[in-house]
Design a protein around this nucleic acid. Structure first.
Length: 478
RNA sequence: GGCCCCUUCGUCUAGUGGUUAGGACACCGGGUUCUCAUCCCGGAAACACGGGUUCGACUCCCGUAGGGGUCACCA
């Protein structure tokens, strides 16, 4: 069997989102599991829409999720260049071969006339086929005359590695533009030439191209070149459940998740399991396992929905699995501003307390800010608390005062804090639901926090006593 | 509209003629001295519909409906 070579061939017209990257991932997995090669090719044949920012976004996104490429722009390779705008001569040569064979013809039908014909066909309830309107005579070939493929309509059936047996009638084959008036090839033409010249074994792409395959098959024949294997990956749809993932659908570009602090291994796991699983009940897959277990045959044929909740669950899982020193490194940059005045040792103690609570790194600041600054007192935390709202100000003050007196005598070791909290429960004959809630609110002024004793220990005696005193004076006023 | 593809809990899915239709996320309830999270236990929740074939259909066949893609000098 020939060497497996797969490619990711995006057009640089915007930021990558999950759907596109998932397709890239599948192509990458096929290459890696077969000791093959993964090629990055930039399809910038649309001059107006392509730009360098998008190219940067593509490479940054691939690097984020760890999809390395063996050949591509920048790094080169034996089949370069890997940017289509640098391959114009190649397409022209192949186009000339088609002209010589009588399989391509210049056509300068105006956009207006095309539109008229399209409307007429639409009205007649049939698909528009240019070949039904081929001009009797072809214009002289000038440099700005578009070149059309002269199709040879017939039925095709072929095998798709994901979708299975597919077929279509001759109505799916038409005369399409090969070279545009600006001299650039269309996608339909360029990708076929490139896949052939770059020795691509598997063309793995998303669903919108499936109905164009018969046209491509017809072109492969005209060109007399070998047809690669096809694998069509269904789309990833957005929250609506129907529409394709897009900016309009509210989809984030993938790099936003990097900024949020979604770990690459979580993103990879998530992407791979939209529309794929190994047949078992396994949910967590490492990159190595994916390489070992992935098969195109087990890719779902129906679209998959992007479920951010599931992504965040996976990410939480991977954060919990992280070695602590690894988490320390990754957390850098996600702390609240107020944390900058504290040393790393203190931050580490805080981090230990929240590792199991983080769904994504960017939550860190909000989750831990009370460890670094006295938050403003929020009376609502008590007045709406289901266990505290019915206590009088006097009762609250009493409880806090007793707590203050007890903790003042503590050496603030975790052990001692726990002992004294237990003692307070006895003395006040309050349930933890009341007393601990109150202390927690007084010392954190937050909706939620890690375990009370541990939080107090990390906060330290001075801070805890100060905050309790502040709370007392605030409840007295109320 | 023509052509093509798709259809199991809200979501991701297991399932390839005989299962109490399984798991996970999310959700709800309970437990872990308080909250949030983790962890553990439990709950609700699906075979789009209609015909066949068969002793027996989620599984096979045919329709119907719904959804998606495509019909560009965009990819």
């Amino acid at each position: 069997m020939n060497k497996v070579r797969t490619r990711f061939a995006p057009s640089p017209t915007g930021a990558l989102h999950a759907g596109t990257v998932r397709t890239a991932l599948f192509a990458w997995l096929v290459a890696r599991q077969n000791q093959g090669e993964f090629i990055l090719r930039i399809e910038d044949t649309d001059q107006a829409r392509s730009d360098q920012n998008a190219i940067n976004n593509i490479t940054a996104t691939l690097k984020y999720v760890g999809l390395d490429w063996d050949e591509g722009p920048g790094i080169g390779g034996k089949f370069g260049p890997y940017t289509q705008s640098e391959r114009l001569d190649i397409y022209r040569d192949w186009a000339n071969k088609l002209i010589e064979n009588g399989r391509a013809y210049p056509d300068n039908t105006s956009q207006e006339h095309l539109e008229v014909m399209r409307q007429a066909d639409k009205k007649a309830g049939r698909a528009f086929l240019f070949r039904n309107h081929r001009p009797k005579t072809t214009p002289a070939k000038a440099s700005d005359t578009p070149l059309r493929f002269l199709s040879d309509p017939k039925s095709y059936s072929w095998v798709d590695l994901v979708m299975g047996d597919l077929s279509a009638g001759p109505e799916a084959v038409d005369d399409f533009i090969l070279i545009k008036s600006d001299g650039y090839p269309t996608y339909n033409f360029a990708h076929i030439i490139d896949d052939y010249l770059m020795d691509i074994s598997h063309v793995i792409r998303s669903q919108e191209f499936i109905s164009s395959v018969p046209k491509y098959l017809n072109l492969y024949e005209a060109l007399g070149i070998k047809v690669p294997l096809f694998a069509t990956v269904p789309q990833v749809v957005g929250e609506s459940g129907t529409r394709k993932l897009s900016k309009r659908e509210g989809a984030k570009q993938l790099l936003e998740y990097q900024t949020m602090g979604v770990l690459p291994e979580a993103m990879l796991n998530f992407l791979a399991t939209i529309g794929w699983n190994d047949g078992s009940e396994q949910e967590i897959f490492s990159k190595e396992e994916l390489i070992k277990k992935f098969t195109l045959q087990r890719v779902q044929r129906s679209p998959g929905q992007f479920d951010e909740k599931r992504l965040l669950w996976l990410n939480g899982h991977y954060i919990r699995e992280l070695q602590f020193d690894e988490l320390v490194k990754l957390s850098d940059g996600y702390w609240s501003k107020s944390a900058s005045k504290f040393d790393q040792a203190y931050k580490n103690r805080v981090l230990k307390l929240v590792q199991s609570r983080l769904k994504y790194l960017d939550e860190l600041g909000a989750l831990t800010s009370f460890f670094f600054e006295d938050l403003p007192i929020k009376p609502g935390l008590i007045s709406t608390h289901k266990k505290l709202k019915d206590l009088t100000a006097q009762q609250l003050t009493d409880l806090l005062t007793k707590t203050l007196n007890e903790l003042e005598r503590s050496d603030f070791s975790l052990e001692d804090i726990k002992t004294r909290l237990d003692k307070l429960l006895e003395e006040t004959s309050q349930t933890p639901a009341v007393l601990f809630s109150l202390i927690r609110i007084a010392t954190t002024q937050s909706e939620a926090s890690p375990e009370l004793a541990e939080s107090l220990e990390v906060l330290g005696k001075d801070t805890v006593l100060r905050r309790i005193k502040n709370s007392i004076s605030s409840t007295e006023k109320a």
